[in-house]
């Protein structure tokens, strides 16, 4: 039978739910709500393939009617422009601040993840591939 389930209710990945266990690169286990900026930086330093990049929020276009937002970032030292479409409650990790989303009330309601409002100018943690020789 063809699936006619509405596709208008996408779900967030399970690892953003409060209490989810996250393994850092050194093997340490932490709850998602306890992660610090240093955890990401140190994990990336250990990683042989991934490096942390700074992604500055340049623009946020969103509406509560669509449940989606388009977030435009300026990524890395070359300030490459990257846009991503995410659910309003999708959390990004802001340097020195923690989890932030376009709609922190929804994030807290759906995930119980403490969250602040993502704003233009925030610098988020993102990943790129290390240059492999």
């Amino acid at each position: 039978a063809p699936s006619s389930a509405p596709s208008s209710a996408p779900s967030l990945p399970p690892y953003f739910i409060k209490g989810s266990i996250i393994q850092l690169a050194d093997g340490e286990l932490k709850r998602v709500e306890d992660l610090k900026t240093e955890d990401f930086i140190q994990s990336a330093e250990i990683s042989s393939e991934l490096k942390i990049d700074s992604s500055t929020v340049e623009r946020i276009d969103g509406s509560h009617t669509s449940n989606f937002a388009i977030v435009q970032f300026s990524v890395g030292e070359h300030r490459a422009q990257v846009s991503v479409e995410v659910l309003l409650e999708y959390p990004f990790f802001v340097f020195g601040q923690g989890w932030s989303s376009c709609c922190p009330d929804r994030t807290t309601q759906l995930l119980e993840l403490p969250c602040t409002k993502l704003s233009v100018g925030d610098v988020c943690i993102s990943l790129t591939l290390k240059n492999l020789r």
Binding site: P13, P14, Y15, F16, S20, I21, I22, Q23, L24, A25, L29, V32, L35, D39, F40, S43, S47, L50, I52, D53, S55, F73, V75, G76, H78, A80, V82, V84, F92, F93, C124, I125, S126, L127, T128, L129
Partner: peptide
């Protein structure tokens, strides 16, 4: 009988969006 539930463990990098800047050269 209560079976122990395995708790999922997620790798740290799954939490971070992978934003690969385009290389101009």
């Amino acid at each position: 009988n209560v079976e122990p539930r395995s708790v999922p463990v997620f790798p740290w990098h799954s939490l971070v969006p992978f934003l690969a800047p385009t290389q101009s050269d």
